[in-house]
Design a protein around this nucleic acid. Structure first.
Length: 475
RNA sequence: GGGACUGUGGGGUAGCUUGGUCCAUCCUUCGGGGUUCGGGACUCCGAGACGCCAGUUCAAAUCUGGCCAGUCCCA
């Protein structure tokens, strides 16, 4: 089997090799930016969705699903929004051979599909808050190079849309979303940055945008998702109003929360190593792979013990794969490491006779669990694996964000930088020019590894109103 | 949006400059047999490709044009 490219020096090549060799996607589908979800990749995606659903529903959101096609006139109602997406939407202009009177947009996101309907759903303050989400595919005509999971044209998209009685309640919803994402990221074992985007980089139509990013090697950053506060920017053009207790008609304040399969790309990018993918247990297509070690003289013990162990773990709700194929154990070890399975159970004659299994995690830590407490032993090992993975990611994160004091410092950044910023657009652009990237925004939540807060703007030197900001080079 | 380059079995490749020696090379993969099996086994047999459509030519993987797909650079 071929060696993987080096993650440190050829990151993109490494990433592409891993997602392909680990059978997460088939990118041979002949349309740019549209890849096939393989059985293994689909398992990971389903687990990812399950975490998102669990956490968002815990905050009082309910699932809905809106159609994929949006009439052009509805799409065009909010001026900034249409401007932001005009160049990257797919149009449906014919039904069969008949040109459509009103062309249809294939949703790039669903504000303009949902909000005309929200206007009908929301009548009274008693209908609020309206918190709904959907997980659907959206389409954006990306012109840049597409990459599996990270930049695609057909996006597996999670989007929550809410209507609140006023600005403060919408702000609260934004906070709630930040909390939900924090709990999701805990399951993904991913440390991340939370920043408020500069005005020139906020979502099309938003009052403000808070985004989650992860730092990668070479000052690169990858956006994982975002939360937007829309104020009344959409409720006015779409006429989403309610009758308040005092009898007045008011516009709702809206928020959205968006995530995508890019999270899967981030998980591969952050946790993966020289041996391939590494999945946190919540996402892993299989949490455990059982490898019986068979020999001519081993008798039926190993295979029977392995089958029994697999069966017991399944009954305990674990995702388990028994690999009883006719290969040498070493070949199986390499394959399942490449596929990122957290735990491997080895069961040979020694284990079958000793009533215990050898258990090795994806970080290479080896141990033994007695068969009579297999279920709890595996559960403990998985929790311990997640802890270690989280710790490893946090250490890498700490080395990927460093402070910079002067503009010149930014030029040859090999990490994402923490800088002081006075908030002016002019200084912001100077920072972006200096790092040859972007000012992601001001820190909205503390870094996982707190750094000393800057006291002066890195561009103009003022100490008035200086905030901690993050600069990097978005992928 | 502008420019450059690339396309050969499932994956990676040789061949293309100078058309013929190519019913296309090698590695890997896949199917079957046998010996194996505690970190990528060996062996035997078999399967599988010139992106698509035109054109030039006695002859096209090789030259020309269009299309499709991909990569990179610049805005």
């Amino acid at each position: 089997m071929a060696e993987l490219p080096d993650k440190g020096t050829a990151f993109i090549d490494w990433y592409l090799a891993v997602v392909e060799a680990a059978d997460l996607t088939d990118k041979r589908y002949p349309v740019k930016g549209m890849n096939v979800w393989t059985t293994y990749g689909f398992r990971a995606r389903r687990n990812l969705d399950a975490v998102m659903v669990r956490e968002i529903e815990a905050t009082g959101s309910e699932a809905v699903e809106f159609p994929a096609l949006i009439p052009a006139n509805e799409f065009a109602k909010e001026k900034e929004h249409i401007k932001g997406f005009d160049n990257e939407v797919y149009w449906v202009t014919k039904g069969g051979a008949t040109p459509l009177d009103v062309p249809l947009v294939l949703r790039p996101t669903s504000e303009t599909a949902m909000y005309p309907v929200f206007a009908m759903w929301v009548r009274s303050h008693r209908d609020l808050p309206l918190n709904v989400y959907q997980i659907v595919n959206t389409f954006r005509y990306e012109t840049k190079t597409t990459r599996p999971f990270v930049r695609v044209r057909e996006i597996h998209f999670f989007e929550e849309h809410t209507c609140q009685v006023d600005e403060d309640h919408a702000t609260e919803r934004v906070r709630s979303n930040l909390g939900a994402f924090r709990r999701m990221a805990e399951a993904f074992c991913l440390p991340y940055l939370t920043t408020r985007r500069p005005d020139w980089d906020k979502f099309a139509g938003a009052h403000y945008t808070i985004a989650f990013d992860i730092p990668l090697a070479g000052a690169r950053t990858l956006q994982l998702g975002s939360v937007h506060h829309y104020r009344e920017n959409f409720s006015r053009p779409y006429g989403i109003t309610y009758e308040a207790p005092d009898g007045s008609q008011r516009h709702v304040h809206q928020t959205t929360f968006g995530l995508s399969e890019r999270l899967l790309g981030a998980i591969v990018a952050v946790h993966g190593d020289a041996k391939g993918a590494v999945f946190p247990s919540a996402i892993a297509p299989y949490e455990v792979v059982v490898v019986p070690i068979l020999g001519t003289d081993s008798g039926p013990g190993p295979i029977q013990t392995a089958e029994a162990a697999t069966d017991r773990l399944r009954r305990a709700g674990r995702r388990v794969r028994l690999d009883a194929g006719d290969e040498r154990p070493g070949a199986k070890y390499y394959r399942w490491e490449l596929h990122g399975v957290p735990l491997r159970l080895e069961i040979g004659r020694r284990e079958a006779e000793g009533r215990s299994v050898t258990i090795v995690d994806r970080l290479g830590r080896k141990g033994t669990v007695p068969l009579d407490r297999l279920e709890t032993g595996v559960a403990e090992r998985l929790a311990d694996f997640d802890r270690a993975l989280r710790e490893r990611a946090r250490t890498a994160f700490a080395g990927s964000v460093t402070p910079a004091r002067v503009l010149d410092d930014l030029k040859d950044s090999v990490t994402v930088r923490l800088v002081g910023w006075c908030g002016s657009e002019e200084c912001g652009h100077q920072i972006e020019t200096a790092i040859d990237g972007a000012l992601l925004g001001t820190l909205e939540e503390a870094l996982p590894n707190p750094l000393e807060a800057p006291t002066r703007c890195i561009a103009c030197g003022t100490s008035d109103g200086v905030r901690s900001a993050i600069a990097g080079r978005p992928m």
